[in-house]
């Protein structure tokens, strides 16, 4: 497998010399495009990745020390919140959207279901500050970290300065998230020439390319653009998607196109988690008719037979990346297991 990985060199890195020998690279397969995240602004170091991983799993980020990033983005579920339609937060509060799976973030240029966040570094501010998620603010989090010896040591190791700042905090979380790369599914082995699709999967792949591939673009299985998918508005949430950001009528009901990788782990589906089963999602698209929505990609009815649906799902199952989900490196870190008050 290693031979299929190519190394991205951070050629332009000219930062502090004491770190230059320790700079790490993102590994990804040759059938992937180059990542869009600019690593020259945030060179990867093992110590910063480790710090980011500590922060990701530590409920110190929330107002009452009860909720961590991993509360809604569990490693066992491709960093989604399996079986929960809407995100959870402090004081048993429930949010308004389904917590998305986290992987291949180095290839994404906008974040949240409505694209409200324009850079991975700034994304964690949204759940951190949301009253129904962590209910905290970055100034207070940085102060809490400053008062914790374990973090002063970790910041020193990562940033050559024991003082936590907002910038270092955000960039460390980014670094951990950048390492969450899902590229070892059966599909990826097939692309590398190390495996073959079964006849049923191959028929499903043909259906996928015909009906799904223009939005759920290979090999990341999303264009990471926005689309109207014909779902009626849930009037208990009144979520009009990207309209909230742009205030442009044309953007009403546009939502981010999610990746189809790791679908077995990331149910329920859609921006509000309204469908528990993949079959329900397929049925939704199958009954969409011309004129129901003005998105040209969805204006042609799929008209899939029951057999077609089974074939399509068998292909989608080749996008499950068990090695990624089970990767012990991504899980709750040792550094947090020995808890001490200071």
């Amino acid at each position: 497998m290693k031979s299929n990985l190519i190394v991205l060199l951070i050629c332009a890195f000219t930062g502090l010399s004491f770190t230059s020998e320790r700079v790490l690279y993102l590994l990804y397969p040759s059938h992937f495009p180059a990542p869009t995240y600019n690593l020259t602004d945030n060179p990867l170091l093992q110590e910063s990745i480790d710090l980011g991983q500590m922060l990701f799993y530590d409920p110190i980020l929330s107002k009452d020390y009860s909720i961590s990033c991993a509360s809604c983005h569990s490693p066992y579920n491709a960093f989604a919140h399996t079986d929960h339609d809407l995100s959870h937060g402090i004081n048993d509060s429930i949010g308004t959207r389904n917590a998305p799976a986290l992987f291949n973030l180095a290839w994404q240029t906008s974040f949240m279901w409505d694209g409200a966040v324009n850079h991975l570094d700034m994304q964690s501010l949204a759940p951190l500050s949301h009253p129904s998620e962590m209910g905290e603010n970055i100034k207070d989090v940085v102060e809490k970290l400053s008062n914790t010896m374990r973090y002063r040591t970790a910041f020193y190791n990562a940033w050559a300065d024991s003082l936590p700042t907002g910038e270092r905090f955000l960039k460390s979380i980014t670094q951990f998230q950048l390492t969450l790369i899902s590229a070892t599914a059966k599909y990826d082995r097939v692309m590398a020439g190390n495996d073959v699709l079964s006849p049923q999967e191959a028929m499903g792949y043909a259906l996928f390319k015909d009906h799904c591939g223009s939005c759920h673009t290979e090999p990341l299985f999303s264009s990471y653009g926005f689309s109207k998918n014909g779902l009626p508005v849930d009037t208990t949430l009144d979520d009009y998607g990207r309209y909230r950001v742009t205030k442009n009528d044309e953007d009403s009901l546009l939502f981010k196109i999610p990746s189809l990788r790791n679908l077995s782990y990331t149910f329920p589906y859609m921006h509000d988690g309204r469908y528990l089963k993949l079959n329900e999602v397929l049925n939704h698209y199958n009954i969409l008719e011309a004129g129901m929505i003005d998105d040209s990609a969805l204006s042609r009815p799929m008209n899939l037979s029951s057999k077609d649906k089974v074939d399509l799902i068998s292909f989608l199952m080749t996008l499950n990346d068990t090695a990624f989900v089970l990767n012990p490196q991504n899980k709750f870190p040792q550094s947090l297991q020995m808890r001490s008050k200071n």
Binding site: N38, D121, M122, S129, H130, N137, K139, T165, L170, T174
Partner: peptide, 17 residues
């Protein structure tokens, strides 16, 4: 992306949502 100094989001001049 994230900036430091006077542009650090801890300065209370960056929107979170």
């Amino acid at each position: 992306g994230a900036k430091g100094g006077e542009l650090d989001p801890t300065r209370g001049m960056y929107w979170s949502w």
